[in-house]
């Protein structure tokens, strides 16, 4: 009896307290609205973002002899393979540019886009063990992927510049930079945004149904052949040109080659298309991702 009365008293006093105090720091609800993106929270976790970047970067090549040298071996080998296969054997056009520079510039760009895309696309599935135990804004993970790959891309870009210098100074090839090279930072942002946006959409879709994940691996490969990595847009027959131009990476790659090497089908219209595509995809990606992150643990 006594116990009951004290419990009742407690209940009553808690009711009274509740009336006084209605300011909660947080309310956990069943679903987040489509547009509730908590940017302040993401900012508060910026240290985690940088630590993830560091972790990705440091851990990848630990216990390997060559370590970061692998960053350069990958594009180098791909460039040689393409030079021999498409340049020498198939004798495809490179707009008169040195084969190595032509392929390497395409490969370096494409690799960054591809890394951003594929490595963010499995965010939920491959991090399920961490996500299942602790909360932090999930978007930190794909962001860290984009940033750590940016460092790798930066190194590969410097590597590409060394080749450029060699061909410009020693080989005397007909290459020169145009003022459009100033667009370079913008192009990087476009690639990162596209990769991130697409990756987030795919990762959200794959939490429940894995089908997209299987599609992705060869899909990205196919997408590369549908972009001007191994051929210039100028060499395309009119009837196929629009398929290739529909690829939002086309504008980015052509603009990059035009700025760095001096030749290419650069048109601002292509870039505007890529930009609009990036904005839409990134926006969609954030929305879907933000909505899925809340309950994905139940289905992953």
């Amino acid at each position: 009896m006594n116990m009951n009365t004290t419990q009742k008293l407690e209940e009553l006093s808690s009711l009274a307290l509740e009336k006084e105090k209605e300011e909660w720091t947080e309310v956990i609800k069943p679903k987040v609205g489509w547009f509730e993106l908590n940017l302040i929270e993401i900012w508060n976790y910026r240290d985690l973002l940088m630590l993830f970047v560091r972790r990705d970067f440091v851990s990848i090549y630990k216990q390997s002899i060559l370590g970061p040298v692998w960053f350069f071996i990958q594009p180098l080998l791909a460039t040689f393979a393409f030079t021999i296969l498409f340049g020498r054997i198939a004798e495809m056009s490179t707009d008169g540019l040195p084969l190595i520079l032509f392929y390497m510039s395409g490969i370096t760009l494409w690799n960054y886009f591809q890394d951003c895309f594929t490595k963010t696309s499995n965010t939920f599935t491959s991090n399920a063990s961490i996500f299942g135990k602790v909360y932090f804004p999930r978007v930190i993970v794909p962001l860290s992927v984009v940033i750590s790959n940016l460092i790798k891309f930066g190194l590969q870009f410097i590597f590409l510049l060394l080749f450029w210098l060699y061909f410009f100074k020693i080989d005397g090839a007909q290459i020169f930079m145009r003022k459009e090279i100033l667009l370079f930072p913008f192009l990087v942002v476009l690639m990162a945004g596209m990769g991130l946006g697409l990756g987030m959409i795919i990762s959200s879709l794959t939490t429940k149904y894995r089908d997209f994940q299987y599609m992705l691996t060869f899909g990205v490969q196919l997408l590369m052949y549908g972009s001007p990595v191994i051929y210039p847009v100028s060499s395309l027959p009119e009837e196929y040109k629009y398929f290739i131009l529909a690829n939002p990476m086309t504008g980015v790659i052509e603009a990059f080659r035009y700025g760095l090497l001096g030749t290419g089908s650069y048109e601002s219209g292509y870039l505007i298309y890529s930009f609009v595509f990036t904005v839409v995809v990134l926006f969609l990606g954030l929305l879907v991702f933000n909505r899925v992150q809340k309950n994905f643990m139940d289905t992953v």
Partner: peptide, 12 residues
């Protein structure tokens, strides 16, 4: 880590 199906949790 995951959200409720219904209801609310208020935290201060």
């Amino acid at each position: 880590v995951t959200g409720p199906t219904t209801g609310k949790i208020k935290v201060s």
